[in-house]
């Protein structure tokens, strides 16, 4: 009994982290039509930078939450730079843009290895959240519940941004029909920078928030990227609801697959992707790409 509850909570927690990672990936995919292969690197970089600030590796120490915010802002700025100075130079050439993101992801992996070495960095659970909540005989780690709450808050904030503001409507217009968005005067290239920075910041935030449960290690980037891809293919590129549902689904499939069929974990993970691609290529909540 307890086993299933724990597995369920772990699945939702992991789904929440995936949502933070994949929502930006999905927006970037929807708007710019490129799978951003640096997304795993941005996640890992956020985790390393945030973790280093928490333990004072850069000569100053901040509490976990301030470190998370600072790391996210730093990586968001890095994302904006990547978009402005690299992707922007290859307008309309999606293959070249994807290759650039792939190249950057390799470089980032090397960079992290050089700076932080090959040993995993453990990130302590933030103060006050190390304990457990008990309900009806089951025990829930407080920090995992906090992650779920954070994911829900971010989801609502993103929804408000995308659904209730003019900027959000412009982004959705750009996802719908980029050429017509430009025709009505929307500076789609500025939206690219904003969305890329936002996605990078969210990925980094997911990285540091996930630090206490996943720890930070070389290869974390390549562990996370396929999961983000999976979420977006299942949920549909550019759809916030799709990212949310896709993340939770993948969170469950990943955790249950690992627990019940460990030798087939990847098979179980990628089978739904194949099915979605074959039966509903635009994803569960995506629209047909014109």
């Amino acid at each position: 009994m307890n086993f299933w509850i724990v597995l369920t909570v772990n699945s939702i927690t992991f789904g929440g982290l995936l949502f933070l990672l994949a929502s930006g990936f999905s927006l970037i995919f929807g708007l710019m039509r490129i799978p951003n292969l640096t997304h795993g690197s941005l996640f890992m970089l956020g985790a390393y930078v945030g973790g280093s600030i928490v333990i004072g590796l850069f000569g100053f120490k901040l509490n976990f939450w301030l470190a998370a915010v600072l790391a996210s802002l730093t990586v968001a700025a890095l994302g904006a730079l990547i978009e402005r100075f690299l992707l922007r130079q290859l307008p309309g050439d999606q293959l070249a843009q994807v290759l650039v993101t792939l190249g950057i992801s390799f470089m980032a992996a090397d960079f992290c290895l050089m700076v932080w070495g090959g040993d995993p960095m453990s990130v302590a659970t933030p103060e006050g959240l190390g304990g457990f909540a008990r309900a009806g005989g089951a025990v829930f780690p407080l920090y995992r519940l906090a992650i779920i709450a954070i994911a829900v808050v971010v989801a609502v904030a993103l929804w408000l941004l995308l659904d209730r503001t003019r900027l959000g409507a412009m982004i959705r217009a750009g996802v719908d029909d980029p050429d017509m968005a430009r025709v009505v005067g929307i500076r789609v290239s500025q939206l690219f920078t904003i969305v890329f920075a936002l996605g990078a910041g969210l990925a980094a935030f997911a990285g540091i928030i996930g630090g206490p449960i996943l720890s930070v290690y070389p290869g974390l980037d390549q562990d996370m990227l396929p999961l983000a891809l999976l979420v977006v293919i299942i949920g549909g590129a550019g759809s916030l609801l799709g990212s949310f549902v896709g993340s939770i689904l993948v969170g469950f499939i990943y955790n249950f697959g690992q627990a019940l069929l460990p030798e087939l974990a990847y098979f179980v993970l990628f089978l739904p992707m194949l099915l979605v691609l074959l039966l509903r290529p635009q994803g569960l909540f995506g629209r047909h790409v014109p």
Binding site: A169, A173, V175, D177, M180, R287
Partner: peptide, 10 residues
Amino acid sequence: RIFRSLTVRE
């Protein structure tokens, strides 16, 4: 080529 997933107002 209206923005199909936006409302009329948007």
